[in-house]
């Protein structure tokens, strides 16, 4: 089942580069790209091969220094965006035109995959995650950020209310984003282990609704849901703007929320810590009042546990 029109998305991204407000509407992606890069730094390792999946203007990969990675592949579906993408000043970078749904990497060839604000347009997210997991070497991280379900809820609600009132029905103007819980399940099902997922919120203010929409267009984030309506009636826009102003106005103007779901997932490896098998506990919770007695011989048990947990030597 396809939700998004990938071809349209590609065109939208291509075309965004020619818009007059292209340069200045990249603020959300630039900020989140930098934050994703910051997370990459949290992993104290040196990576041989890094992939920036859906790099856009190189929001993540442009920051990467030679202490972090030795080689970067920038992957982006839109050729025009990719050509404008900024590369890291010190790490050799190769640019590739790649559809996120069709990864061109050998199995177990990559050391880290980063992806910032691009995977929310992928139709087959489970398949994409699986492909990433396969192309990663064992025990390597996949670091990413995606727009979460509450992104642009103000705009969504205003447009829905206005359309409901004037047209007697609603059509999808804001794309359906992935929920935090779903993301965890998807990553798990794709075979990733040791997930960490957290949610961030970025708020931004606009003079009016149209300038928000123009900025979204500049980011190449126009609507590309298959069932989208190609037009928006002028009356609907006016009413939506009114509703927006009524409900979500602040001192600085109309507020728009970008909810960012960050995740770090690891490709599986036997050396990673694992939960113990069910039923392998040595103590029962019933004995909690006798804890002093039990802790006496805990030391020997701990050693035993260690052996069970890490059959090989710990990394």
């Amino acid at each position: 089942m396809n939700v998004f029109d990938r071809k349209a998305k590609r065109l939208q991204r291509d075309r965004s580069t020619t818009l007059p407000n292209f340069e200045e509407s990249q603020y959300v992606k630039e900020e989140i790209g930098y934050r994703t890069y910051d997370r990459l730094l949290d992993i104290k390792r040196e990576f041989d091969v890094a992939v920036d999946l859906g790099c856009g203007l190189g929001y993540v990969s442009r920051h990467i220094t030679k202490d972090t990675a030795k080689l970067i592949y920038q992957c982006e579906m839109s050729e025009k965006l990719l050509k404008k993408a900024e590369v890291s000043p010190e790490v050799p970078t190769y640019k590739l035109i790649v559809d996120e749904e069709f990864l061109p990497f050998k199995d177990k060839s990559l050391d880290v995959v980063v992806s910032s604000l691009s995977l929310h347009w992928v139709n087959d997210l489970p398949g994409c995650f699986k492909a990433v997991q396969k192309s990663l070497k064992p025990d390597r991280p996949f670091i990413g950020s995606m727009f979460g379900g509450d992104t642009l809820f103000e705009l969504r609600v205003s447009l829905q209310l206005a359309e409901q009132e004037l047209q007697g029905g609603i059509s999808p103007h804001i794309s359906p984003f992935t929920d935090v819980r779903d993301l965890g399940n998807l990553l798990n099902r794709a075979g990733f282990t040791m997930l960490t997922i957290d949610v961030d919120e970025v708020k931004s203010s606009y003079d009016d609704m149209l300038s928000l929409m123009m900025d979204l267009k500049g980011m190449g984030e126009n609507n590309c849901v298959w069932t989208r309506r190609p037009m928006l009636h002028r009356n609907t826009i006016e009413l939506a703007e009114k509703k927006y102003r009524e409900m979500y106005s602040t001192e600085e103007g109309l507020e728009a929320t970008f909810q960012i779901v960050n995740f770090i997932a690891w490709s599986p490896d036997p050396s990673q810590p694992k939960p113990l098998q069910r039923g392998s506990a040595k103590f029962s919770l019933k004995d909690i009042e006798r804890i002093d007695e039990l802790t006496k011989d805990v030391k020997s048990l701990e050693e035993e546990l260690d052996k069970g947990l890490n059959p090989k030597k710990d990394k």
Binding site: P89, P92, T93, K95
Partner: peptide, 9 residues
Amino acid sequence: RFSTSLFYN
């Protein structure tokens, strides 16, 4: 700070 053409392939 960033360049687009340094390691252009």
